[in-house]
């Protein structure tokens, strides 16, 4: 195998995989070195991306370009000023100035999430729960119709019970304790079961993802060694 960029990449990859997998025998300096190098490299990479993909093309280049109109350049002075205010956050004395930018980002972010949650999740999901009972596609097939209604009902009740679990309105009792209404309490209890099922499915998914990552790493180790055999 000739020494190439691929071989160098493979060797480095092999080394770092072993450094990290050494954690199996316990926390050790090799593992620490590997993780610290990784954090440093990742942060440096992100910084380079931020410069080349954000600052230069969206701020610096348009400001120095001759093909950009004066109006556009003038509008870019606002984020330029904002960037300077953000940089002031580095200094403890001037960090308060960064609040203006943070306020802007928070306001814009809140608006975007409100609109997204309302139009992209809340209304479509409610409609999706209702549409599960649409019988039109199953007309003439009693088995499928029954299955569809059953599944739709399970999803509907699962959704309602789960939402009941997140309902925290309570009334004080004679003994001073706070309890939910009786019906809500029962719904919430069933909701816990549904949440448990969902979390169980998510756990299996997380394990599957982690297992695939482990398989991919072990496979790469075997393949690298295989190059020399």
């Amino acid at each position: 195998m000739a020494i190439s960029l691929d071989l160098i990449t493979g060797a480095i990859s092999f080394l770092f995989t072993l450094l990290i997998l050494s954690y199996v025998i316990g926390d050790n300096p090799l593992f620490k070195i590997g993780t610290y190098i990784f954090v440093g490299v990742s942060a440096g990479f992100i910084a380079a991306i931020a410069v080349w993909q954000v600052v230069i093309p969206r701020l610096v280049s348009p400001l120095i370009s001759t093909s950009v109109s004066i109006t556009e350049k003038g509008l870019l002075l606002v984020p330029l000023l904002g960037a300077l205010l953000l940089i002031m956050k580095i200094s403890p004395r001037l960090s308060g100035m960064g609040r203006i930018v943070m306020a802007f980002l928070t306001g814009v972010g809140a608006a975007v999430t409100i609109a997204g949650a309302l139009t992209g999740t809340l209304m479509p999901q409610v409609m999706g729960t209702i549409n599960a009972f649409d019988m039109a596609p199953y007309q003439g097939n009693a088995g499928l119709l029954l299955e569809s209604i059953t599944n739709g009902a399970i999803v509907l009740f699962g959704t309602i019970f789960t939402l009941s679990y997140f309902h925290f309105g309570a009334r004080p009792r004679a003994d001073g304790s706070m309890r939910r209404l009786g019906l809500i309490e029962i719904f919430a209890w069933v909701g816990r079961v549904f949440i448990g099922i969902t979390l169980g499915a998510i756990f299996a998914g997380v394990y599957a993802a982690a297992l695939t990552a482990l398989i991919e790493r072990l496979s790469s180790l075997i393949n690298f060694i295989g190059n020399f055999l």
Binding site: A11, S13, G34, V41, F45, A213, S220
Partner: peptide, 27 residues
Amino acid sequence: RPEHGLMGVVMNGIIIPVEAALMGLLS
């Protein structure tokens, strides 16, 4: 520049192996 081949070495040689190995340990 980030798209250079050497930065690819950094990504494929360090970032991906370390992250994936950590993920593997998670299992």
